[in-house]
Structures are given as C-alpha cells and as structure tokens.
Design a binder for these strands. Structure first.
Lengths: 150, 150
DNA sequence: GGCATAGTACTCGGATACCGAATGTCCGAGTGAGCAAGG
DNA sequence: CCTTGCTCACTCGGACATTCGGTATCCGAGTACTATGCC
C-alpha cells in the first residue's frame, strides 16, 4: 500500500496557501518546495476539482483556498489527491471456486471486508481530526509570510 | 492508495488453513477460491517468510499455520503480504526549495508526517483487533470442514 | 512377513514476461492586467 | 484628466511519454510416499 507523493506536495501547498493573501501560481508553489512544476500543476487541478482551492487565470493569477483553513481537514486533501476509493476492494471470492457460498448467504458484507473497512474508517477519522490551520500553527510562519509578500 | 489483491486471498487462505487438520497445497487453496494457482503461490511464500504459515514439501505436502488462529491477527497477514513500509513516506520537502528550513529546525518529524503516521497507527491498531479465529467464527465452517476432509 | 531401495508423483521456490497506474513533461487556449492613444 | 481599446505576458488545462510496482506465468530443485524386490 502506497500513498502518492502528490499528497505530501498538496498538503504543503495548502499550508502555504493558508498564509498567502494573494493568489499563488502553481509554478511559484513548485519553486518554494523544490518540486516539479508541471507535475505539481496536475495535483493542484485535483485540489480544484475537489473544491479545496480555486484557480484564477491571467496575469497575477494563481491558486487560493476556497474555505477557511480551519475548515479544511487533512482528510479532505488526501482524498482530493488520492481519490475516495477504499484501499481494500472485496472481490467476493467467497462466491467463487469450490467452496463458493450460495448468494443468499452473502446478503451481509464479507467478514474480511468488514474488518478492512473498519480499519480504513479509523484511518480517515484520524486524518479528519487535523486541519490545515493546525498544521500551519505548528511551524514558524514568519519567514513564510515574508517570502510570500515579495 | 491501493491494497494488493493478494491480501484478500491470503486472509481467506488463513481462514481455510485454520480449519484444516492436514497440510493444504497451494494449488488446492487456489481451486477452493477460484484464483490463479501460481500467483497465489507467490503470496503464500510471503506468509511463510513472515512466519505465519509453514510449507511442507513432497507428496501430501502443503501449508500449515504456524501459530494458533487466535494468535494471528489480520494485521499480521496484511503486513506479510503488503510489507511493513508506511503508506506515506515523508520526502522532507520542508528542507527543499526556496523556503527550506535549516536542518536544526528539523530535528522533530514534520507535522504532516506526524499526522499521517498517527492515522496509519490507528489503521494498524484496528486491524490488530481481529484474529483469524474470529474471522473463522463469523461464518459457517461445517461445509468447509467437510470439503477439506475429502 | 519385514526391510531396504528405487521410482515417482507431488510439492515448493525463484527467475521470467506482462500490464496498468503513478510519475513526469510538453504545448496550446484563455484571461486579466497594464499601457497607450484618443476624447 | 478620464475612458476605451489593444497588446501582451502570464495563467491554467488537457494531451502525450516514461518508469515502476503489482499481476501473472513458467519451469527446475527437492522431498515424502509407495510399490517392488530381496532377505
């Protein structure tokens, strides 16, 4: 199980955007973090599709957060980049092969799928407990604000 | 984020093995579940490397669980197949690019990495709460035992 | 009848192709700001 | 001085290569059972 590197990029970008008063272009965000400009742009598009950031075009354009940083959770960003599909997908192999169960015994979810779903719920609940604002609060943002002003 | 299909296969196989009194060959396990024999064999090797199942060779050989089903958790199986590497890997981009932090401010883990690690801990804790024995207890094993006896 | 031995069929194990998704890159369409000219 | 139109640089957005891990397969090495022949 592997999480896309874009998740890390997007989270850092959201922290930066939470401190910015003006739109920040994707190329600028990439420079600030030392990552690929074009590939970061792709992930920022995902943030826009999810309603987390809003792009503005033309000169002096860039991305702006659409909600207060206190109302954007880490889970929101992770799901925007990585999608909302569950990591574990039950293929119902209990209905396949020699010891296949009859369909009428499969009205309730497979026990294995239930355990995996519970674990992912716990994972999502944990991620939803932290907001972008809290992340920004854990680090010194004075230097960040100064750089953004220029 | 996507979990290997082998995880589902391995969990089902462990449930079957928990009900078997004799070694069960990998090819037989594949038939029982209607999955690829050779690919399942690969995952069973992973279970063996993790000390969950033990293979015996030669005729009438096969796999046997190495511990009581009550002492094998779902997490054990998931980590045997999927590995123990965390899904989120911090690449320390806070030390890269224009707003790189000085190394002395990076003695403690990045706040983002901490949040992600906490979530994965919650995920693992949830998976560790269920054992193979409990999974086997949720379904009717009479038919399974009968098929295994033949 | 008991035992040694050779045969055999069955098992696992690692080395080898294949495929899809994540990663990374490029160029074109669109837009807003700024400047210049005219009133 | 204000308005209006144009220009232009800058932005995003989607379409196009490349790399890597998961998926799937095959054949060889090794072993335990079994049948057979001998004592």
């Amino acid at each position: 199980m592997r999480l896309s590197a874009g998740v890390e990029w997007a989270l850092h970008c959201c922290v930066v955007l939470s401190q910015a008063e003006q739109p920040v272009p994707s190329a600028r965000l990439a420079e600030l973090h030392g990552v690929s400009k074009t590939y970061l742009a792709k992930h920022l598009q995902a943030l826009a599709r999810a309603g987390i950031a809003r792009p503005s075009e033309g000169r002096d354009g860039g991305y702006v957060l659409m909600r207060e940083p206190t109302r954007i959770t880490v889970l929101d960003v992770v799901q925007a980049i990585d999608g909302t599909d569950p990591a574990f997908r039950c293929t119902e192999i209990r209905q396949q092969g020699e010891l296949a169960l009859p369909p009428r015994e499969c009205r309730t979810p497979c026990g294995i799928a239930r355990v995996m779903a519970d674990a992912e719920r716990a994972w999502r609940r944990s991620l939803a407990e932290t907001t972008i604002a809290q992340l920004a609060g854990t680090l010194d943002t004075s230097g960040l604000r100064q750089i953004l002003a220029t």
